[in-house]
Design a protein around this nucleic acid. Structure first.
Length: 795
DNA sequence: GCAAGGTC
């Protein structure tokens, strides 16, 4: 008979098969799924990779209609498991029938144990007598894998059940509270209001911060500086630092103002090491990526691509210590074929290469590091930027420390002490390789104890204390990690979810009115779900189950009892909670005052998408069309010409303010960028439903002439027309590139002509790469289809 | 149409 080995993901399965078979395994593809086969000691082995969880937990179909189910009843409904990755599930069952043993070789962590148990449950449906074993390895390298397979153990059911309890609890709390709150506030359909163990505490933090900012009372304080000169200009600060007492400030100023000299009381110079940064885990990778202007979600999506294409290691990791089995030198040598060759050679020439290490060391995956060389031609745009970040981070972690000279001086002016501090780089060390962190110190001149230094002036600087800053994606990720909210794989998704649900807006994150109202209601009536402690408690309970001290049933029941309490409380306050939230979300949609009756002009949804209408409808019938893409915000301003509200439209390519009234004089000629060469009408900058910009003729539908436009970067319409085809010429200004001018007509006869001219020179390669980008563009559009397919498959 | 956790 044969043995079936189950890995957590395709890549892991491939590596397990390779390691156990000494590279002799054969792969067979069935659709998107690969099965690896090999023989060893006369025994046949199959290795199959899962895609994480292949079953999901949900309530049966009979509970799908929200209005027909009392959420309180839902609390005690037993959810059911359904295979969502059908293809993998079918292959799993088919192979299991042929085998007498199955070895679970999923990741060595809690979820890995559950993923394995789920597979076993499916297998037992078709082969109840199969023998089940577990292989636990802490790195996907041959020696570790072999050791694990020589020391097989049993599946840890308690550990798996602990993870399962989390699933039950998250689903119950999430579904019940989401439904309760959504129904109470009349937000049904796609506008539902979600609540969850991780997202709600995260949102509550953001709301709390906003509240702190709003209620912050700035305090005036002073700082006193002495501007000094010894060969160079520098400054010293009064030792009191921030002075909030006005009398104290006056007293000091009285003594020091007008002074011409300071006496140096002491001067010291020290050297300190500037340690290189620690290896990347998911959180630090994503927070550093925000410096490149990438959102956490976008950075993660790119990291995934780089991983599947074999450029970087697995991007979902908490580990900050390179594992023992990893070759640092080998990793560096791999990069010799990249544009980082010179830097890598410098690093390799060190007598000893010792990497930095962080505090967190896990055994499932290494920190994120580059595994293969790439060039700017292969990886473009953001992909290259992120790859470069990973490479430079890796180089920095094995680069020498910087050496920093630290200077400290104490000085006296008429009995008042002033301090000067200087820092300068003696040796650049890792800073040279990692430009994302800049050395910020500044040197002061060398001083001598007991000498005088000339004062050029005393400065009294008045300032005000500032409220704590709003969260950014980077600071939010860090805070979530600190509080144990979410995991390396989900934190960025949770943040994205808060944006998608319109709970938060902006790079400097603000909660919407709806979010504030939602959080206030939850804090008052369902505090548990807004606190990180719920996760901490759950973690403890899970540990209890894993250790065998608690039962799955007790933990889940206890949680359901608590949820029942909360549910009853919300039900009893249903009207006031619903009223407060729907009032807030109504306000969110107000764009300004109606110029005709003074009512509120609100965003409304109709059959043909969104539009703006007066709140006094049907008495007042004022309506305005709205663009169907982009975010619309009120500006609080009224149009000076027609009195209608002025709105702001925010698109990924920029923002603009305009009068909401399309027939207003201020909108005349808006967006007109040139003449249509076909009919002489106006060419107007328009946006499709999906937010893509293009040029369309004003005589549409009589004239159907359109031109596509680049979707990234700022556009400047030059007013010039193309000498070949008469289409407008546009200048594209995009970050990190020189502005370039193009004719917007993609099939302009002038383009071929230019290509021909280029080919005459040595530009053959260049035009070749141009062709490939053109193909890539088309490929992208095609790639949209399979991803849609995937989405429907899931459902 | 609910969550959070794997993975793609």
């Amino acid at each position: 008979m044969s043995t079936l080995i189950i890995g957590e993901k395709a890549n892991a399965a491939r590596r397990i098969a390779y390691a156990l078979s000494d590279g002799k395994s054969k792969s067979k593809r069935e659709g998107r799924v690969s099965v690896h086969e090999f023989e060893k000691d006369g025994e046949k082995y199959y290795v199959l990779g899962l895609a994480g969880h292949i079953v999901s937990l949900d309530y049966g179909k009979e509970y799908n209609q929200w209005k027909k189910v009392d959420p309180e009843e839902l609390i005690w409904v037993e959810p059911v498991k359904e295979v969502h990755a059908r293809a993998i599930g079918n292959i799993l069952k088919r192979l299991a029938k042929e085998c007498d043993t199955v070895i679970i070789a999923t990741d060595f962590d809690r979820e890995g144990e559950l993923i394995g148990m789920e597979a076993v449950e499916l297998i037992k449906q078709v082969n109840p007598s199969i023998k089940v074993k577990r292989a636990r390895f802490s790195a996907l390298i041959k020696s570790e894998i072999e050791k694990a397979f020589q020391n097989l153990t049993d599946l840890d059911t308690n550990l798996a059940r602990s993870a399962e309890s989390r699933q039950y609890i998250d689903l119950a709390w999430g579904a019940v509270l989401t439904r309760l709150i959504s129904m109470a506030s009349g937000r049904l359909g796609r506008d539902f209001l979600s609540v969850g163990r991780v997202q709600s505490p995260t949102l509550a933090m953001i709301v709390k911060r906003e509240h702190e900012i709003e209620s912050f009372v700035p305090e005036t304080y002073w700082k006193i500086y002495a501007h000094l000169k010894k060969k160079r200009k520098f400054r010293a600060e009064h030792e009191a630092g921030m002075i909030k007492d006005e009398a104290q400030k006056d007293a000091i100023m009285k003594k020091v103002d007008g002074a011409e000299k300071v006496k140096v009381l002491s001067y010291t110079e020290k050297e300190r090491k500037g340690r290189p940064p620690i290896p990347f885990n998911t959180t630090t990778l994503l927070t550093e990526a925000t410096k490149l202007g990438l959102s956490a979600s976008r950075a993660m999506a790119i990291a995934e691509e780089l991983y599947t294409e074999g450029y970087i290691s697995y991007p979902r990791t908490d580990n900050t210590v390179y594992p023992r089995g990893m070759s640092i030198k080998g990793t560096l040598e791999n990069l010799l074929e990249s544009p980082f060759k010179d830097e890598v050679e410098e690093i390799l020439s060190q007598p000893k290469i010792s990497p930095t290490r962080g505090k967190v060391e896990t055994t499932d995956h290494p920190p994120v590091y580059p595994v293969r060389a790439a060039t700017k031609q292969k990886l473009k745009g953001d992909k290259w930027k992120l790859y470069e970040l990973v490479v430079r981070r890796f180089i920095a972690t094995v680069a020498p420390s910087a050496e920093i000279r630290v200077q400290d001086a104490e000085m006296d002016i008429n009995g008042e002490k002033f301090l000067a501090h200087g820092e300068s780089l003696i040796k650049e060390g890792w800073y040279k390789y990692y430009p994302y962190i800049k050395f910020k110190g500044k040197a002061i001149p060398e001083l001598e104890e007991g000498t005088d230094v000339n004062v050029e002036g005393i400065e009294l600087k008045e300032d005000q204390t500032e409220p704590p800053p709003r969260y950014t994606q980077a600071s939010l990720l860090k805070e979530m990690e600190r509080l144990g909210l979410g995991t390396k794989s989900t934190r960025h998704e949770i943040i994205q979810k808060l944006y998608d649900r319109k709970y938060i807006t902006g790079k400097s994150i603000r909660p919407t009115k709806t979010a504030v109202s939602l959080v206030n209601s939850l804090v008052e009536h369902a505090t548990t779900i807004t606190e990180p402690e719920m996760t901490a408690t759950l973690e403890k309970d899970m540990e209890g189950i894993a250790e065998g001290d608690k039962s799955f049933d007790d933990v889940v029941k206890e949680s359901r009892d608590m949820l029942e309490q909360v549910t009853k409380q919300i039900k009893s306050e249903r009207a006031s909670i619903g009223g407060a939230i729907s009032k807030a979300s109504d306000e969110e949609n107000v764009l300004g005052k109606c110029p005709s009756c003074g009512g509120d002009i609100r965003i409304r949804r109709g059959r043909n998408g969104r539009f703006a209408g007066c709140s006094n409808y049907p008495e007042c019938k004022v309506t305005y069309p709205l663009p169907q893409s982009g975010t619309i915000e009120p500006t609080g301003k009224q149009c000076e010409v027609c009195g209608a509200p002025v709105i702001r439209i925010i698109r990924s390519t920029g923002r603009e303010e305009m009068c909401i009234n399309p027939t207003c004089k201020t909108n005349e000629g808006r967006g007109v960028v040139g003449k249509c060469p076909l009919c002489g009408g106006d060419l107007i900058l328009r946006y499709s439903r999906r937010g893509k910009r293009f040029l369309g003729c004003s005589n549409y539908p009589a004239c159907g002439n359109t031109y596509p436009l680049p979707q990234r970067g700022k556009l400047e319409f030059t007013g010039e027309t193309c000498p070949y085809c008469g289409a407008p010429i546009v200048t594209v200004i995009s970050k990190g590139r020189k502005p370039w001018k193009i004719c917007v007509n993609p099939v302009c006869p002038g383009k071929e002509k230019k290509e021909k001219e280029k080919k005459d020179g040595s530009a053959e390669k260049k035009s070749g790469s141009k062709n490939s980008t053109a193909k890539k563009g088309k490929g992208k559009k095609k790639a949209g289809k399979p991803s849609k397919k995937r989405a429907t498959e899931k459902k």
